[in-house]
Amino acid sequence: MTDLLSIRNLTVTFPTPRGPVDVVRGISFSLGRERLGIVGESGSGKSMTGRSILKLIRPPGRISADEMIFDGIDLIRRSERQMREIRGARISMIMQDPKFSLNPVMTIGEQIAEALTTHNSVTRRDLRNRVLEMLHAVRIHEPARVAGLYPHEVSGGMGQRVMIAMMLIPEPDLLIADEPTSALDVSVQAQVLDIIEELVAGKGMGLILISHDLNLVARYCDRILVMNGGEIVEQCAADALHRAQHPYTRGLLAAIPRMDEDREELPVLDRSAWAAA
């Protein structure tokens, strides 16, 4: 199987008053048309990794890599204009919180339509049908009514389904989901992830699911990367996660509370265990 995405030696650097800081430090990984999970705590560089695939690191941050090959195209050598043809159309990203990531003064229908018309020329009637179909596909029951609403008029769960519809309507090959459920109520998290899983599998897309939730990633992904301090510390198959070797991963696993346990206190990560390595 040829890789959909292959990254070699990716580094993301931010200048600070005390000199440049690498938030991602020379990581390499590849991805087929599969579901890859990236986990790690806050500040581990997982979101920066996701955004650098789209080359959307905000200045003064800088990306460098030996190569970043997506479907035969080396993204790192692409101009901003060429990247725009890829963004949305071929690689898309679901952002964290629909309260902030949807434009407050555009209707939901307009925002979804824009994702499609940016890359395809569609007749007005087709456009409306495609938008309504897509809303239906993310299990919104009254698509015609919802399309006319503004983001502040829908719930967080519905907002995130709108986000999914918007990012999948141009039928990209790779979807990056950056903490897609951490802003949602627990009761709707599974529903949103099920929709993502179903659509990604149905269209044979690649998925990168970025999360801090080990259980969630283990459940929805085939393979897992564990990141810490801007580096990949462990790669394993999702079902082999409990056999993970690296002390950081073991520490994270040990810190997950269980329903049937009687531990008084959850263990704290002992950072000295891998700092030496």
């Binding site: 905000r58 725009r84 963004r87 898309s92 990203m93 919180d97 902030f100 949807l102 434009n103 555009m106």
Partner: peptide, 22 residues
């Protein structure tokens, strides 16, 4: 600096439209 401006960029919207429309 708003997230929805990044959303527009993720969609591949041309920069001029990002600035004026979003």
């Amino acid at each position: 600096a708003q997230e929805y401006v990044t959303t527009a960029r993720v969609k591949g919207v041309p920069e001029r439209r990002v600035v004026w429309r979003h």
